[in-house]
Design a protein around this nucleic acid. Sequence first.
DNA 1: GCATCCATGTAACCAGTTACATGATTTG
DNA 2: CAAATCATGTAACTGGTTACATGGATGC
Lengths: 218, 218
Amino acid sequence: MATGTNSLELVVLGLLKEQDMHGYELKKRMTESLGLIMHASWGSLYPALARLEAKGAVKAVEARPAIPNIPMTGSLGGERAVFRLSGEGPRGSRNKKVYGITDIGSALFTAMLNNDSEIDEKGFAIRLAFANHMDSEKRLKMLRDRRDLILERVKSSRRNLEKKRFTLEPYVELVLEHFRLNNSSDLAWIEELIAKEESSMQTPETDLMVSQEVQDNL
Amino acid sequence: MATGTNSLELVVLGLLKEQDMHGYELKKRMTESLGLIMHASWGSLYPALARLEAKGAVKAVEARPAIPNIPMTGSLGGERAVFRLSGEGPRGSRNKKVYGITDIGSALFTAMLNNDSEIDEKGFAIRLAFANHMDSEKRLKMLRDRRDLILERVKSSRRNLEKKRFTLEPYVELVLEHFRLNNSSDLAWIEELIAKEESSMQTPETDLMVSQEVQDNL
DNA sequence: GCATCCATGTAACCAGTTACATGATTTG
DNA sequence: CAAATCATGTAACTGGTTACATGGATGC
């Protein structure tokens, strides 16, 4: 069972990796930055958080540390600040349940992100959105898999159209044509990403994303 | 609840409108002609058929009386069915259960097709695919609604990007950019369809919105 | 005569939705 | 102090999925 393909949990973990947040904030942030890609309703977000908490992937923390200008280094193990921070979020804090990601959560995030069995459009977009947390081999593999999948789909559609023994209704033809165009455009985009990825592999040093990843794993 | 916007049922009815079919055939046909747009699994198709039958929207018929225009290789099956069938139930010669659409089904199809509350991408594509069964006013309304929705989405995304107080991860930016491009392309396509629809309507005295837009374009 | 398609269905599960229920805090 | 917004959650439902169970027909 590829039960690890829960996109929402992946996104929650990905956002909590950046900074501690409570549910409401999480959703706001989600729609603000990823709104075009995906969205979540309260009825899915809170249960997702509860599931993650039950797994030990996230845990409630007392307060949110100030938005770090510099990536934190020593946040592990030590108690988070018990004191109120003067310049914190726009609203005061009570009743809020601020979540932070745990080591288990980080591991789960990586596992979900690297889980190859994801195939659908949205899942791909989400994984790609967090692709700076993957190593470039995995990234490349994901891109190539996606390309192959689309290619296969297009080919099979063309095959079906050729051997078709029936007349398509006019609007079906229209929609199909548009979908084919979209597929081509997606394909071109992915090919471009693959090319970029490949060329950047040949100059492995000074890769921002890699160094970020290294930082994350510390 | 039964009035829901069930895409699968809509498609089933739409296909049965063309010709009588049994479940297996239905699915084959579905993936052959609409494969890029949607797909169904056995576990969803057969229950959908059962639901439609329970509603009286489809019923099992003996053989396929069918559409004479489209040459089919299924005449052999028809012969056999006629041969074996005398007092038997609607369940055909083999174990096949050939379905036909009823008047109720036709009405349901129209109702679903004209149901405005549909908003998501797939639902739109499917409705558009069967848009030759809508009258052109409804078609136009659907197209405009879709255009407005995408427009709104793009605007809101742009708004969020402007006021953003956080740094987007690099790949998020990348994916977002692609989604924005896709939205633009969709938008252009829909505008084109709208224009075509308007020009083919040629009933200037009735539709206020059309005349307004025509004025704008002058 | 055995594999492979054709053909129909059920059961368990899954990720998500809408609608509901509740209450705290801020602001005009 | 009322309205809006912030904030968290539950319940019932929806529209699917995969895996399973079964068996007839075809073809090699």
